[in-house]
Design a protein around this nucleic acid. Sequence first.
DNA 1: TTCTAGATTATAACTATTCTAAAGTAATAA
DNA 2: TTATTACTTTAGAATAGTTATAATCTAGAA
Lengths: 137, 137
Amino acid sequence: MDNSTNFIAKLRNSGLRPTKQRLKICEVLFSGKNTFHFSINELSKIIIQKTNEKISLATIYNTVHAFLGKGYIKQIAVNSEQSYYDTNVSEHHHFYDEDKNQLIDIHDSEVEPVKINRKIPGKKIKSIELLVKLQNS
Amino acid sequence: MDNSTNFIAKLRNSGLRPTKQRLKICEVLFSGKNTFHFSINELSKIIIQKTNEKISLATIYNTVHAFLGKGYIKQIAVNSEQSYYDTNVSEHHHFYDEDKNQLIDIHDSEVEPVKINRKIPGKKIKSIELLVKLQNS
DNA sequence: TTCTAGATTATAACTATTCTAAAGTAATAA
DNA sequence: TTATTACTTTAGAATAGTTATAATCTAGAA
C-alpha cells in the first residue's frame, strides 16, 4: 500500500473527496518525514516545484481550509501580513525570526508547560499559542 | 498642567511633532484610566465618537506606526485578518475570544512565567507572546 | 453510462494596508 | 512677525492576501 492509497483513504474517511488536487496537496504536505511551516504562496510554489503542475490559488485556499477543518494542519498566528500553517498539529510553540520571516519549532523539552490559572465563564480553551519573536543580536 | 500639555511634551520628547491629529490620538489612547486593545478600524471609530471629527485612515496608520516605534503601544499577533494593538506595553499575555473577536488581558498572577531553555545563535528574544484562544463551551 | 452533488478554476470583488503626491502646518531663523 | 523648510496630513491610487462567483468539470452513486 503506497502513500497515495493512504491519502485516498485518509480523505475519504474524513468525508473529503479524494480529488487529483487534494491528493497532490497531501503528497506535498504529508509525504516527507518532517513537518513544516508554510504560507499559501509558499505552498503554491512547492506544488509547482514538486509536481511541475499548478493548482489554482482558489483550490489551494479551499483545500487548506478543508484540511484545517479536519485537523490535518493548524494555523499559526504570526502577524497580519499573511497566514501561516503548520503540518505539525501537536501542541507546541514557535520562534519567529522576523528578519528571515521564518518559524522555528520550540520543542516541549525546551519550554515549561504553560499553565493558565483563570477561567472565562462560558468559554473553553481551544488552543495555547506561544510565539517568541527573535531579532538579530 | 493638563493632559494635552503632557501629550505635547511626550511627543516632543520622543521627536514627534505634536500635531493636532497626534494629540487627538494620544487623548483617545492614553487619557482613560484603563489600557485597551484596538484595531485600526476600531480606533478610527473611537476617534469619531469621542471628538466628532475624522482623522484620515492614512494618518491613523502613520501615527500608530510612529507610536509603535516609540514604544507607546504594542502590536499583538492574533490572526491574519487585521492587526491588533495594545495600549498596555508591559509584557503580558492574552485570551482571544474568537466568537466575540475580543482580546482579554491575562495578568501575571494568572500564568506561570514562560521560560525558554533554548537559544538561537545570533538572535535575541524581542518579545514573548502567549495567546490563548477561547471558544464557547 | 448517466446523473448529480461536490470540486476546480479564472477572474472579479473585497479588505487591510501601504504608497503617492499635493496641500497644509510646526519649528526655526532672520 | 515673517519666511523658509522639513515634516505631516490627506484623498485617493495601488498592492497583497483572501474570499466570492459562476461556469465547467469530475467522483461516486444509481
